[in-house]
Design a protein around this nucleic acid. Structure first.
Lengths: 337, 337
DNA sequence: ATGAAAGCGCTAACAA
DNA sequence: TTGTTAGCGCTTTCAT
């Protein structure tokens, strides 16, 4: 059939060698005479032969594909991690299937499909503790958690050092002279929120300040919840001089609420967030924040996963990245833009 | 080998039928006796058999996988489209490989890899005219362009009706009483920017206003370029009473510049954007915009691609979606939030 | 309705 | 170094 694409055997016939030799050539094996190799390569070129990845997967029992599952694909933190992971995967010869699973059930169905049918060699799970999804994680399968430190020793993970990021943010506010610092947290069932709360508390304590429950308000990561938090503090009569919001979106909500109550920022209220989301420098005023390196987290995760698949990696390892303070005008008049 | 996973033959042996019958059962063929089917199903359940997708792909010559390539995965417009496409693909029995290609060269390499090695059955290209990448698109292969109408009749596409969105935005400003309306465009080498410029011009003309070159400033979609545009208009001495920014990021830059020059919005300057990006309602003031339904665009693209693969679709079709006006306070004092 | 035989395109294991 | 023989796990074709 000259109509369909040439196979390894077509090349072999044309080059006057066995198909196995062709296989050796396309796999870059050393045990092929330079002359033979050259002849085969010329034929490959002439016929326009390109190996079929599926057939290769079939024979090797490896798909050279990874999957990355996140609660959604649009949140920029997830998207940045995915982009980093995808590039790293590709650099290592793997493709990446990125899927969103909005619920634990969707997650479970997806994992069953992916792993059960052997479509992928490894799995990256972003925000495994977003809900009960971590319970449905495959056993004895190459796996890496991202965005939350793993609660199980045996599962690899890559995540921000939340405690330290919060500690650094709070110390920064303390050094600025603030002594009444409130915090807007994420949902307290997430470890991440707790870790950040702990960092905040540790910093205060270190400065001899008793952490005050009245200054800690639970949010849900949304801008609206940040807005609500500041109104709540005001009504409660505990307006602080500074606020540590556990993410930038909530910090943005705080900025909005402050505007609504005519509080001048940073003079009357200093605000710091976490993430350094896109356009944070375009908020009014530009937002001081603890920047996370999401693409790097994604890259580390992909690299770790690949090395697990190749059997190079030890049982387990937990990577923690550090956030970097970006000073802008929401905390200091002369701050950067 | 009882250690590895059961195959179709293991099930066949156990159920006392041929492996072909098992194949028929798992493919839901009708030509199997209810009793036989039941027996096979019980065995499948008992053995925990799950068909291997790779082997199936191998035999059928179909991967049941699509690819989606965008300039990056983090821009929320791309991410939203991808999310929509991915969900729709999955609902149709396909998985989706999402990849970023930052340049035309990277794009070409990626396409060669994906199509050459037969890893996917179809391709979605987001923003094909971002650079020269559209030149490297595969021929005779299921393909859909997204985010820009196709310049070639033969290639399917799904995109916003840019001309109409811009027309509607401008008419809205005109109806508000504005007569001096500036526009910040995207890069003029993109069709999308041109289409939007045409819509703007058509609206003005309809109101008997001569479009003025001095009121049209070319940007690059970034907030910074929007900021620069307003400063440019001011220096040029052509400050308008309203601005139509071709996307929300540039509109945000305009808001920032207006703040810097102490222009009150919307009283002294009304601003409208396109997209309705996340948190647009949290800008200062909340941004009026022409909302695009990205997830829907993604879904339509995936659906179209699947039907092309299945051979159900005619030669070519171009879908155009419409934007929806979202009124907020950047154009009207009493506007929504 | 069911089964037997023959691949899909490649790699792995062994032989020469 | 090269070739031969078997699969990988499934579908397809053709008998029965």
């Amino acid at each position: 059939m000259s109509s369909s694409r040439p196979t390894i055997r077509d090349v072999a016939r044309q080059a006057g060698v066995s198909h196995q030799t062709v296989s050796r050539v396309i796999n870059g094996r050393e045990e092929v005479t330079p002359e033979t190799r050259a002849r085969v390569e010329v034929t490959i070129e002439a016929l326009g032969f390109i190996p079929n990845a599926i057939a290769r997967s079939m024979a090797q029992g490896q798909t050279h594909t990874l999957a990355c599952i996140a609660p959604n694909l649009t949140d920029f933190t997830f998207a940045s991690i995915i982009e980093g992971a995808e590039l790293e995967a590709r650099a290592n010869g793997y493709f990446m299937l990125s899927s969103s699973a909005g619920s634990a059930d969707a997650f479970r169905a997806l994992v069953d499909e992916l792993i059960g049918h052997r479509r992928v060699d490894g799995l990256v799970v972003i925000n495994p503790y977003a809900d009960e999804r971590y319970r449905y994680v495959p056993q004895n399968f190459p796996l890496v958690f991202v965005g939350a430190r793993s609660r199980q020793e045996s599962i690899c993970s890559v995540a921000l050092d939340d405690e330290k990021a919060a500690y650094d943010a709070t110390i920064y506010l303390l050094n600025l002279g603030h002594r009444c610092i409130a915090m807007v947290t994420g949902p307290m069932e997430e470890d991440c929120s707790n870790d950040r709360a702990n960092g905040y508390t540790r910093a205060l304590t270190q400065f001899g300040i008793e952490p005050d429950e009245a200054l800690m308000v639970e949010g849900d990561w949304s801008a609206t919840s940040g807005q609500d938090a500041l109104f709540f503090l005001k009504e409660q009569g505990t307006l602080p001089t500074a606020i540590f919001a556990q993410n930038d979106r909530m910090a943005l909500g705080v900025l909005r609420a402050a505007r609504d109550m005519n509080l001048r920022i940073p003079e009357q209220l200093a605000v710091i967030g976490v993430d350094d989301m896109p356009l944070a420098s375009y908020f009014d005023p530009p937002l001081t924040t603890m920047k996370q390196d999401m693409p790097r987290i994604g890259r580390e995760a992909a690299r770790m996963l690949v090395s697990k698949i190749c059997g190079e990696t030890q049982q387990s390892c937990q990577i923690r990245t550090t956030a970097q303070l970006i000073v802008r005008q929401s905390t200091q008049m002369g701050g950067g833009t």
